[in-house]
Amino acid sequence: MCTAFVSFDPGSAVPVLLLAVRDEYTDRKWLPPGCHWPDQPNVTGGLDLDAGGTWLAVAPSTGPGGEPVAACLLNGFGHTAPPQQRLSRGGLPLIAASGEPITSAWLERYDPFHLIIARPSGVRVVSWSGSRIEDHELPAGLSVVLNDGVEGRAGAQPCPPYIRATMAARAAHFRARLQAVARPEPADEPPDVAWGQWLPIARGDGYRRTTRQP
């Protein structure tokens, strides 16, 4: 299960904070963040060596107003694409980082996903169920995006109850912990300083999953 927390504070010097954990398909080969795509030399991200895409892409300036953009991908539940037409979802963060809009015209070739598109002026989550596209603008404050969508409210099928319960427990634990400490404003400092009290929480906070498959 992948989990992403997004803190949006329009009045902050750092309006958007994104914490994401990728813990699916961990056996896939990958390379650390870098400029891996010659046709997008300004984009930084980790490289999926199986399909050539990424799960998190960052570009210094693109899209409306030339704002920086970060695009983070989570897999979703729903209807999968036909195998003979399927495209890797890892290409979606690169599309978003280029400034190109995500539209329903060609999404039938992708398995379900949730794509966080973050800019200093606001954060959107584009969700595709395999048959329907939804576009959510996140409010100010702390939001969580799970494999079952924004705040786990997509209600997608099939999603086994124990998986939904596990996602909800993880979201509740980390939301409470992040809200209980000061929101950082990362600057040009070492991570241990820049991320303040959020860093040990982001590193796992000693959390252990307790919900088990029946």
Rank of each mutant, 00 (worst) to 15 (best):
residue 84 Q to C: 01
residue 140 A to L: 03
residue 85 Q to V: 00
residue 62 T to E: 11
residue 105 A to H: 10
residue 125 V to S: 08
residue 119 R to L: 00
residue 67 E to V: 00
residue 86 R to F: 05
residue 132 R to E: 14
residue 118 A to T: 06
residue 122 G to S: 02
residue 78 G to F: 02
residue 88 S to E: 14
residue 136 H to F: 14
residue 142 L to N: 00
residue 84 Q to E: 14
residue 116 I to R: 11
residue 134 E to P: 04
residue 129 S to T: 15
residue 110 Y to R: 06
residue 129 S to V: 12
residue 127 S to G: 10
residue 124 R to F: 00
residue 139 P to W: 10
residue 88 S to I: 14
residue 132 R to G: 00
residue 96 A to C: 05
residue 130 G to C: 09
residue 128 W to C: 06
residue 76 G to C: 09
residue 117 I to P: 01
residue 78 G to K: 07
residue 93 P to Q: 06
residue 113 F to S: 13
residue 98 S to T: 11
residue 130 G to E: 06
residue 121 S to M: 06
residue 82 P to M: 05
residue 123 V to K: 07
residue 118 A to S: 01
residue 143 S to Q: 11
residue 82 P to T: 01
residue 148 D to V: 12
residue 64 P to Y: 05
residue 122 G to R: 05
residue 100 E to Y: 07
residue 128 W to H: 04
residue 133 I to R: 15
residue 84 Q to V: 13
residue 76 G to V: 06
residue 127 S to W: 09
residue 101 P to W: 13
residue 135 D to K: 07
residue 91 G to E: 13
residue 112 P to F: 06
residue 146 L to R: 12
residue 124 R to E: 04
residue 145 V to R: 08
residue 137 E to L: 14
residue 148 D to C: 08
residue 93 P to H: 08
residue 69 V to L: 09
residue 77 F to V: 11
residue 82 P to N: 02
residue 91 G to M: 12
residue 82 P to L: 08
residue 122 G to T: 13
residue 149 G to D: 11
residue 147 N to G: 15
residue 107 L to R: 15
residue 121 S to R: 05
residue 148 D to A: 11
residue 147 N to F: 07
residue 143 S to M: 07
residue 127 S to P: 05
residue 95 I to F: 00
residue 107 L to K: 14
residue 115 L to Q: 03
residue 138 L to G: 08
residue 138 L to T: 03
residue 106 W to P: 01
residue 139 P to T: 09
residue 133 I to E: 15
residue 135 D to N: 14
residue 74 L to M: 07
residue 117 I to V: 15
residue 101 P to A: 13
residue 70 A to F: 01
residue 98 S to V: 02
residue 107 L to Q: 08
residue 68 P to S: 05
residue 134 E to F: 03
residue 119 R to T: 12
residue 112 P to Y: 09
residue 81 A to R: 03
residue 86 R to M: 10
residue 107 L to I: 07
residue 127 S to Y: 07
residue 62 T to D: 07
residue 133 I to V: 12
residue 70 A to I: 00
residue 71 A to M: 02
residue 99 G to L: 13
residue 139 P to N: 06
residue 106 W to K: 04
residue 96 A to W: 08
residue 145 V to M: 06
residue 147 N to E: 15
residue 133 I to M: 15
residue 127 S to R: 04
residue 71 A to R: 02
residue 78 G to R: 08
residue 116 I to C: 08
residue 110 Y to H: 15
residue 67 E to F: 00
residue 64 P to I: 05
residue 86 R to A: 14
residue 114 H to I: 10
residue 105 A to Q: 12
residue 91 G to V: 13
residue 65 G to N: 09
residue 119 R to P: 00
residue 88 S to Q: 12
residue 74 L to Y: 09
residue 115 L to E: 04
residue 102 I to L: 15
residue 102 I to F: 05
residue 81 A to Q: 03
residue 139 P to F: 04
residue 132 R to L: 11
residue 147 N to A: 13
residue 94 L to G: 10
residue 105 A to N: 09
residue 132 R to K: 14
residue 72 C to A: 09
residue 126 V to C: 05
residue 73 L to W: 06
residue 84 Q to M: 10
residue 67 E to S: 08
residue 110 Y to N: 12
residue 118 A to L: 01
residue 144 V to F: 04
residue 131 S to D: 15
residue 84 Q to N: 11
residue 95 I to E: 06
residue 146 L to T: 15
residue 79 H to D: 09
residue 107 L to T: 05
residue 86 R to P: 01
residue 140 A to H: 07
residue 145 V to H: 02
residue 148 D to E: 12
residue 129 S to P: 11
residue 114 H to P: 13
